[in-house]
Amino acid sequence: MNFLVVGGAGYIGSHMVKQLRRAGHELVVADNFSTGYRSALMGATLVELDIADAQALDRLFAAHAFDAVFHFASFIQVGESVSEPAKYYQNNLAATLTLLQAMIRADVKRFIFSSTAAVYGDPVYVPIDEDHPKAAINPYGRSKWMVEQMLEDFDRAYGLKSVCLRYFNAAGADPDGELGERHEPETHLLPLILQAASGRRESITIYGRDYDTPDGTCIRDYVHVSDLVAAHALAVDYLLDDGESTAFNLGNGQGFSVQQVIDTARRVTGKEIRVSEAPRRAGDPPRLVADPTRAQAILGWRAQFASLEQIVRHAWAWEQKHPWQ
């Protein structure tokens, strides 16, 4: 197959590129490098563009007969989305609309979208299935939910088929050690913990120890990045086999607390890892855990790296490389 991977130089996108190339597919990466890294492409064909540029997209689609498009080019920082909502609606929503319009003009009718569990907002029940009410509580989550709604309309009007993959907490790194997580600034828990272990930061902060959980810290569902991209590969096969537009939750179906992640990192790294404490942050629910039953039943997806220790070990091997320094 011939695929376009938008945002293929980023964390999850680069792992997707490696997966697709390993499977023998042809692909082009489109990225503007606002957050991605050229070194993450490992020789993949690159077209440097911004998906907000309709003319550049038309040239790209005219030059290639793509079977499907993978979209990873969203901004993801929740806090920044609150302070700079225009940035998030412009990139995550408006630029995605420009991409979808270019696809329709080029008669490309299959789309794999990186969505998020943030579309659900504060959970009404746990574990969270796909039918859970959608009530995003920040512009990041709302921008993703708006795209999902837009995709429903594009299916009805233009026959564009899509799969929306709602990630819970993406974590870990390529088991081969070639790729990993490197956001700037970093906001995800596990890399922050491992930066404290490696000495790149003084400590890790725990925000609240008074939640209604066994150890008082928040519980989250961590899913290995390699398992995420495996789900994307299954999702595109599903669409190529004439599957209908739908959405899937991607998580392990089990939660680990902040304290459990720190304790596991201490065992894996052999480092003390200093901890500081702060009050709860607004909008942090006690538990966010996926119900991945639907992805398992329809896609045949199973997490291969469900162990927290495996996730931490792969991320630690990547952190020790310091490829960005």
Rank of each mutant, 00 (worst) to 15 (best):
F3H: 12
F3A: 13
V5D: 11
G8L: 05
Y11S: 07
G13Q: 08
G13T: 10
H15Q: 08
M16P: 00
V17D: 09
K18D: 11
Q19K: 15
Q19E: 14
L20D: 08
A23M: 08
G24E: 04
L27G: 03
V28G: 04
V29Q: 04
S34H: 10
T35L: 09
R38T: 00
M42H: 15
G43N: 03
G43Y: 04
L49K: 08
D50T: 03
D50W: 05
D53F: 07
A54I: 11
R59M: 12
F61E: 05
A65P: 12
F66D: 10
D67W: 04
H71Q: 09
S74G: 14
F75I: 13
Q77I: 13
V78E: 04
V82N: 02
S83M: 10
N92E: 09
N92F: 00
L93A: 10
L93W: 04
T98F: 05
T98C: 09
L99F: 05
L100K: 05
Q101S: 12
M103N: 03
R105F: 01
A106G: 04
A106C: 03
D107H: 14
V108T: 15
K109E: 07
S114L: 09
S115Y: 07
T116R: 01
Y120T: 01
V124Q: 14
Y125V: 12
V126N: 07
P127L: 07
D129I: 08
E130T: 14
A135Q: 14
I137R: 13
P139V: 02
Y140K: 03
S143T: 02
M146T: 11
Q149D: 13
Q149F: 00
E152T: 12
D153T: 13
A157H: 13
G159P: 13
S162L: 05
C164R: 06
R166M: 06
Y167L: 15
Y167V: 02
A170W: 01
A171C: 06
G172D: 06
G172T: 05
G172M: 04
D174V: 10
D176K: 13
E178I: 11
E181M: 14
E184G: 12
P185W: 02
H188D: 05
I193H: 06
Q195I: 00
A196V: 04
R200M: 11
R201W: 05
E202Q: 15
I204C: 10
I204L: 12
T205R: 09
T205I: 11
Y207C: 09
D212R: 12
G216W: 00
T217G: 06
V225H: 07
A230C: 09
A235D: 12
Y238M: 02
G243A: 00
E244T: 13
T246V: 15
F248R: 11
L250G: 10
G251P: 05
Q260L: 01
V261H: 01
I262V: 15
T269D: 01
E272R: 14
A278N: 12
P279D: 06
P279K: 03
R280D: 01
R281E: 07
P286W: 02
L288C: 10
P292D: 05
R294Y: 14
R302Y: 07
A303D: 08
A303W: 04
Q304G: 15
F305K: 13
S307Y: 02
E309Y: 00
I311Y: 08
E319N: 06
Q320L: 15
K321R: 15
K321Y: 06
K321W: 06
P323M: 06
P323S: 01
